[in-house]
């Protein structure tokens, strides 16, 4: 298996946590992994992305070449569009539809949605509301991850196991909230 994933969002929205969960599950399978992160000035409310590459074969570049990502996994709809040049022809966009508006010229949501819907394979849904419904307000990122895992070839159990391992130090309540968030995402069609 080989999966190249662009994780997108705004600094502080939790895309690195998604990367850590997917990475943990991939390593458990014995896959190779490279994950390029963004640190520094861009993290201050700017757009951030992470290139996550998982493969059974050796991985060379830390960066995903243009036109070859299997998925753009975005916790914010405008950010999902920013990385379209990386997406391959039959790649998927999985994106939260709730905008994060910290710029004065944020485009109208309807226009953003229209652009996302031009991509043949997409899942666009309100992950914020689903997270809140699960009383897991801070786990919107995990809801988005939930919607992606079957497209990435991971099982619910594999991801649950990774979540338990990663969030265990933060206590049972946080683990449970994230597991509920994951399930809410998985059930999204």
């Amino acid at each position: 298996m080989k999966k190249d994933i662009i994780l997108a969002g705004v600094g502080g929205q939790g895309i690195l946590t998604i990367a850590t969960i997917l990475g943990t599950a991939a390593i458990k399978r014995g896959m190779n992994l490279k994950q390029a992160e963004v640190h520094g000035m861009s993290q201050r409310g700017g757009d951030v992305q992470s290139h996550l590459r998982l493969s059974d074969d050796p991985i060379w570049s830390d960066l995903i070449p243009y036109g070859s990502a299997d998925m753009i996994l975005s916790v914010e709809p405008l950010e999902a569009l920013r990385y379209l040049p990386y997406l391959k022809e039959d790649g998927w966009i999985i994106s939260n539809s709730t905008p994060f508006k910290n710029i004065p010229n944020y485009p109208p949501e309807e226009e953003i949605y229209r652009e996302i819907k031009k991509i043949p394979n997409y899942v666009l849904f309100d992950a914020d509301t689903l997270a809140n419904a699960q009383k897991a307000n801070r786990s919107m990122n995990i809801v988005v991850l939930g919607a992606a895992i079957t497209h990435l070839g991971f099982s619910q159990e594999e991801i649950e196991e990774a979540i338990k391992a990663i969030f265990a130090p933060k206590g049972e309540a946080i683990v449970e909230a994230n597991l509920r968030a994951l399930l809410a995402g998985i059930e999204t069609k």
Binding site: D47, A69, E79, L84, L87, I103, P107, E115
Partner: peptide, 20 residues
């Protein structure tokens, strides 16, 4: 041969870093 996906739609504006 270069591989490149779809272009970034015109409506996508920059999101520069800002003070918190």
């Amino acid at each position: 041969p270069d591989t490149i996906g779809r272009p970034v739609p015109e409506i996508v504006v920059g999101r520069p870093p800002a003070l918190c």
